[in-house]
Amino acid sequence: MRVQTEEWRRFIPGVRMYKGKKTLFYNGEILREGDGTNPLIYNREERLSWKVIIVLPGVRVIPDWTFWSCKNVEKVIMSDTVRRIEWGAFSTCISLEFVKLSQTLEFIGVNSFQSCVSLTSIFIPPSCREICNWAFNWCSEFIIFHVPQHTLIGRNVFELGKDVIRRTKLFEASPFYGHDNDYNAEEVNTWIKNINMNEEYELHRACSSFNPIEDIVYGIVRRKGLSSFQAPNALGITPAQYLAANPYADIDQHKLIKRYIAEMMGEPV
């Protein structure tokens, strides 16, 4: 009988221990019905035991309320086949800290991550066309929200609901906080996309971009100095923080710093 490797086993649906944490390998099943209060497959006790959710290849849609109130889930990793996250899919996952979205994601539904109070950052892939209202509402620690600069606001292009970031740290840091509804969605969209547009934030843009390129990041650091890694933007976020939070970044900051120091000292790199 052929022994299954861990790499092969991780593509099998179901719940099991993976890298020391109880993990659901999700295959697109309907796990809840109605408003999300009625579990169909896993009971409440089982759902509360999960620490990680890995969405398997082949899944295109995460249905309404699928992971609602999975309160101990800390990490969600999606395969790159996922196109849509529907209404309330991850709502009230209060321990959720890390999300890697599908690189082909097109749609994020209403309330999809609402009340994920431990979530601090989301990086939206260029493929995404619509983020609906209240998607990150009540995510009280949410501060890093990268939306691709080249996308346009408008019908059938890229739309952000007006209250996508309501009651978050990001909204509290915005010029709209305390003005009730005296603003429109386009103003919010423009502000979000232009947070790092000043020339002084060039390194912030590079580190928060989709699949940042090490040589580009290094080139900016070399030109601006090592201290630029720790320079905060208007939100108080540094390039180092963007890079550490970016799930699409494959850059080792420590190696990059060593490379900089070696070059400055005239040592071979």
Rank of each mutant, 00 (worst) to 15 (best):
I122D: 02
L96A: 07
H146S: 13
H204Q: 12
F107W: 12
I165E: 03
R155A: 11
E130A: 02
R155Q: 14
I165D: 04
R129Y: 00
F145C: 07
E97N: 10
L119G: 03
I195G: 07
I131V: 01
E159G: 11
V164G: 00
C207D: 11
S115E: 11
W134E: 06
N111P: 01
A89N: 02
C116V: 03
S112Q: 00
S102Y: 01
A89F: 02
T92L: 14
V117S: 15
V217M: 05
L101M: 04
R155G: 10
S115N: 15
L170R: 05
N137E: 07
I144T: 06
I124T: 02
F98H: 15
N137V: 04
K162R: 15
K169C: 03
V147M: 14
V188I: 13
C132N: 05
E159K: 12
N137H: 11
F107V: 09
H204S: 08
C116E: 03
L96C: 08
A173P: 09
L96P: 12
D215Y: 07
N181Q: 12
R167C: 14
E186H: 11
S112V: 01
S227P: 13
L226Q: 09
K193C: 05
C207S: 09
S95R: 07
H146G: 06
F107T: 08
P148L: 02
I124V: 10
E202Y: 01
T120F: 01
W138L: 13
E214A: 13
F123D: 08
K100P: 15
I195M: 10
